[in-house]
């Protein structure tokens, strides 16, 4: 292929959309932010609310690193707009537990060495909490399947399975074999 390519009109030049006050309820606290509609929940957390525990791995819902809980349900925060989450109850990794006051999943991830670089870890843990809230995973295979929305490039899946299983086990009356 050769020749001169004319510039493709990628789009018109528009002024940036105005930011407006948005209140997001994150980890039980109201955050009063100035956001334009085009800010994703993920970017609102990381760049505007200063909560960098939630990770950006692909920004397209293809990796799960940005998983947070909204009204107790796990979602990819990169694929929703912050303004659409006004009024919702958002929980991030910072809200699950802190150093010295670890959530059982956080402790289990450490015990089972369920991570290496740690970049997917907050998303994995939020996802695991979502899995527990859903109550649909009763076997190892079901945990594997229902944790498959979180990619770990380091390949810590054995540890992740064991960590999640340990906490699910403690919470369940009986885990089907």
């Amino acid at each position: 292929m050769s020749g001169t390519s004319t510039p493709k009109s990628a789009g018109q030049s528009l002024p940036p959309p105005p930011a407006a006050p948005v209140t997001l309820r994150i980890n039980g606290q109201d955050h009063h932010l100035e956001l334009a509609p085009w800010t994703s929940l993920l970017d609102a957390l990381r760049e505007y609310a200063g909560l960098t525990g939630t990770k950006k791995g692909c920004d397209h819902g293809q990796c799960g690193a940005c998983t947070v809980l909204v009204d107790g349900k796990r979602i990819n925060s990169c694929l929703t707009l912050a303004v659409l989450q006004e009024g919702a109850d958002i929980t991030t990794i910072e809200g699950l537990g802190q150093e010295g006051n670890l959530h059982p999943l956080q402790q289990a991830f450490i015990d089972h060495d369920a991570f290496q670089c740690g970049y997917c870890t907050p998303g994995q843990i939020c996802s695991a909490q979502g899995l527990i809230n859903e109550g649909k995973a009763h076997t190892e295979d079901e945990i594997r399947e229902l944790m498959s929305g979180n990619i770990c490039r380091c390949g810590a899946y054995v540890g992740i399975l064991n960590a999640v299983k340990e906490v699910v086990d403690k919470k369940s009356i009986a885990l089907r074999s």
């Binding site: 990381r46 200063g50 960098t52 910072e94 537990g97 010295g100 991830f109 450490i110 015990d111 870890t121």
Partner: peptide, 21 residues
């Protein structure tokens, strides 16, 4: 022994390069 940086990583406290605000 478990990773000494484990608590920082599992709580989101560990800062990666694009996270120094």
């Amino acid at each position: 022994p478990s990773r000494v940086e484990g608590p920082a990583k599992v709580t989101g406290a560990a800062k990666y390069s694009a996270e120094f605000n």
